[in-house]
Every structure is written in C-alpha cells, then in structure tokens.
Amino acid sequence: MKSDGVPKWWQTPISKSVGLHVGLVAVLFISGLSFWPKPTQITLSGEAGNSTSAPPPPPPPVEAVAIDRKELEQRVADIKKQQDDARKAEEQRIRDLERRAQQAERARTTEEARLKRVAEEKRKADEAAVASRKAAAEAKKQQEAEAAKARTAEQQRVAREQERKKAEEAAKAAEAKRKAEQEALAKAQAERARKEREDRERAEQERMLQEQMSAEADARRRARSQQAVTEVQRFTAMISDAIDRNLIKDESTMRGRTCRVNIRLATNGFVTSVNVISGERVVCDAAVRAVNRAGTLPMSQDPDVYNQLKDITLTVAPEF
C-alpha cells in the first residue's frame, strides 16, 4: 500500500538536478550556434594630413562551434539512467514502506490480543479484590452498627438529663420573663398616657397657631387686595391718560361720541393687540391710532396688578 505523503519520482531532488543539467547543455548549444566575431575597422592617414576611410576588409570565414554529438547523447543517456535509477530507488523505498506498514499492522494486532488478555486478567483480579473489600466492609459495618447502638444509648441518656435541666431553666426564665413583661407593660401604659397628654397639648398649640396664622394671612390678603385694587385703578387712569394724549380729536365729529376697545399688554406694557368692541367709527379709528402711536402703555411690576391689566377694556370718550 503506497503512502499519500511519498513524493513522485519527478519531484525528488535527483530528478530536479538532472533537469537542471539538461537545460544547461541546451543553453550552451544554442549560444554556440549564434556566436559570430565582429569585423575590425582600419583608418589610414595621408601625407598632407587629410584622412580618408578605407573600405572594410572582407569578413573572415565563419568558424562554427563544433558540438560533439556523441558526447551529448552520452550525457543525455547518463541523465536518463540517473532518472531510471532514482525511480527504481523510489519504488524500492515505497515497497519497503509497505512492508514495514504490514509488519506494524501484524505487531499491532498481536499487541491488541495481548492487551485484551491482560485486561481480562486484570478484570478478574479486580472482581476478586472487590469481593474481598466488600466482605471486609460488611464486617466493619456490623462492628460500627453495634458501636453506634452503644453511642446512641449513651446519647439518649445524656439528652434526657439535658432536657430536664433545660426544663428547669425554661421555667425559671418564663417566670422572670413574666415579671419583666408586667413591668414593661406598666411602663408602656404610663409612657403611652404621657405621650397622649403631650400630643393633645401639642395639637391644641398647633390649632391655636394655625388659627393665628390664618387670621394674619387673611389680613394680609385683604390689605393686598385693597392695595391691588388701588394700583389697578391708578394704572387704568394712567393708561387712559396715555391714550388721551395720543388721541387726535375733532370736536365737530367726536363730541358726545365714544368707543370701547380691548387692549392686550405684555409685562412691560408693550401693546400686543388692540381691537374695537363697539362705538362710533370715527372715535374708534382715532382710538386705535392713539394706542398704536403710544406703543407702550404704563404697567405695574406687581404680578397681581398685571394679571388684571394685561387684557383690559376701556371706553374712549374725547373731551373738549
């Protein structure tokens, strides 16, 4: 059986060397056929100092490089012999590898049979050892069981003695706990009564304080409301005066006539919109022009006052 890792005969170092020699011989042969000597040029000089070029002499006869055909054939024959020898050597090496592989397979089969025998003998020995250990374990188990019974009896006696002592201690602890609970209950009742009394007093104080704070807040709200009403009235009058200053009046067309307009203002008094609600057109047109001409009307910095003046409706009645 041939191995896949064995190189072919043309891939061996010997075959590569033979191919290199054959290539070298071919190159020498071609270069010898293409060799030609170059002609020589001769220049003659005259007596008067004038020089003329003489025609070149005829080329020498061609000398061909002779190749010994027999020697070349001998070299080729040697190379082929070397290739045949390398191929035969490779085939012999492959046969040797196959023979060794067969020997190794026979040795492996023999070794497997021996290992099976050894494994069977070991299995029997292990079974015998297991049986021996099992018997020893049974005997030890019986001894341990008897010893465990003796320890259990002693432990039960000790446990009963400990339970008796624990019962006595538990009775004493229960009595002490009962007394402590009674004392704690009395203290808790007294503490609860004290806290309830303090809570009632604190609640009464908080109620009185809340009533006082509520009364003070109502007083402040009333004062603030009165002040806001006064401020609204004052700035309403100032807004009306500003519109009246910018109003262009005509007694013949406006006397006795009015116009209601709605004005919306920004926080700084800037007029954002002005709309006519009702009235005489001549007065309404003059009022709208007056508001736009003013551009910014008086406005309080108080937020409460601004909230009442930011969307205001006025009656414009020109006076003469």
Results as ranks from 00 to 15, higher is better:
S3D: 14
P7M: 07
K8D: 10
T12F: 03
P13T: 15
V18P: 00
L20F: 15
H21A: 13
G23K: 11
S34Y: 00
T43V: 15
L44C: 00
G46F: 02
A48D: 13
P55R: 10
P55A: 13
V62G: 00
V65L: 06
R69V: 09
K70S: 03
E73A: 12
I79S: 11
K81R: 12
K81Y: 06
Q83S: 12
R93S: 06
R95C: 02
R100H: 11
A101C: 08
T109G: 10
T110S: 09
L115M: 07
D126W: 15
E138S: 13
A139G: 07
A147L: 07
A148Q: 05
R151A: 14
A153K: 03
Q156D: 10
R160E: 13
R164Q: 15
K166W: 11
A170M: 11
K172N: 03
A174G: 09
K177Q: 03
E191T: 13
R197A: 15
R207E: 02
M208D: 04
M208I: 12
Q212L: 15
Q212D: 14
Q227E: 15
Q227S: 14
V229T: 14
V232W: 01
S240E: 15
D241I: 08
A242T: 07
D244I: 01
E251F: 02
M254Y: 01
R257P: 02
C259K: 04
V261L: 11
R264D: 04
T267F: 11
S273A: 09
G279N: 04
E280L: 08
V283E: 00
A286K: 05
V288K: 11
V288F: 05
V291R: 00
S300K: 01
D302P: 02
P303H: 10
Y306E: 10
L309Q: 00
T313K: 14
E319K: 06
